[in-house]
């Protein structure tokens, strides 16, 4: 039963992983990237994430998101930081209108990889985690059910608004409104709708809150159980331990290199 509940998500090592282990993973990768003195470690993590995406049968959409976000942001930050960072001393590229400095460029690269590590690991987590499992896992570790409810309900708002917009569009068409023309005419028909759609989702969520209590939600003195079983397996322990250890090692290494105790191989001036 617990398996079929996540039928929409293809089976993979990531999908089987305990949601809490995945959250630990996001934190470890992200924080390690920040702690590391330059962008190289982050770059390595991004490669690892691409591999992970491939095992989770999510390579294409993952690559789309990462490149779609990564390329414009890299260009933008390289341009701003690379050309205009006050820390620039070494020029690596001389454009006609500006000079690209080494320090600023490295700093930009560090920001880009950090953002991409967070984005990529977060994206993979949401794509490989059935939300019901996440909430069940959270309640297992003692997160109050109301917090779990808030997470799920807010994740549900967007698809609900999409559904509503579809029916309203049908209604508009059947009352003589043409919206399938160009983007401007669609937008013009649409913008006035946003208010009512948001308003109705709000009243809906208000009514929802009341019905939940008639089904025993928030009853006192009872420890809730969940329908979905989320098993914590040995691999999850192993993964969590490795992720934590990785972060601690990176942190220790970075601090020591910062204090000049241990020189960390190459250091590409990321500490801008």
């Amino acid at each position: 039963m617990s398996g079929s509940a996540s039928a929409a998500i293809p089976d993979s090592p990531l999908a089987r992983m305990h949601p809490i282990a995945k959250i630990v993973g996001i934190c470890s990768l992200g924080l390690s990237t920040i702690a590391w003195p330059d962008f190289t470690l982050g770059l390595l993590f991004i490669l690892v994430l691409f591999l992970a995406a491939a095992t989770a049968h999510e390579f294409k959409p993952f690559a789309k998101i990462m490149l779609g976000f990564g390329i414009p942001v890299t260009i933008m930050l390289l341009f701003i930081q690379g050309c205009y960072s006050p820390k620039n001393t070494k020029t690596i590229l001389d454009l006609d209108f500006a000079r690209m400095g080494l320090e600023g460029s490295l700093y930009a690269a560090k920001i880009v990889v950090t953002l991409m590590v967070f984005l990529g690991s977060f994206y993979l987590t949401t794509k490989t985690t059935y939300m019901g499992r996440l909430v069940a896992a959270l309640s297992q570790v003692g997160v109050p059910s109301k917090v779990g409810y808030l997470i799920l309900a807010s994740l549900n708002v967007v698809p609900q608004m999409q559904r509503r917009i579809t029916v309203i569009e049908q209604s508009q068409h059947s009352r003589g409104l043409e919206t399938s023309g160009n983007i401007i005419s669609r937008a013009r028909a649409f913008i006035p709708l946003l208010g009512p759609v948001v308003l109705s989702s709000l009243t809906d969520s208000q009514e929802r809150g009341m019905t939940l209590e008639t089904r025993g939600f928030g009853i006192k003195g009872i420890r809730q159980t969940s329908y979905i079983k989320v098993q914590w397996r040995r691999t999850d322990t192993l993964f969590t331990a490795c992720a934590t250890l990785l972060f601690l090692l990176v942190l220790a290494g970075s601090i020591m290199s910062g204090m000049g105790i241990v020189p960390l191989g190459i250091q590409w001036g990321g500490r801008a």
């Binding site: 019901g132 909430v135 409810y149």
Partner: peptide
């Protein structure tokens, strides 16, 4: 109005109240 809007499946929806009772 009866739906919890947190259940991804009908099975979880049906089970919602039971979970609150700690079944």
């Amino acid at each position: 109005n009866q739906l919890s809007y947190t259940a991804g499946t009908v099975a979880e929806e049906l089970a919602f109240g039971l979970g609150n009772y700690g079944v």
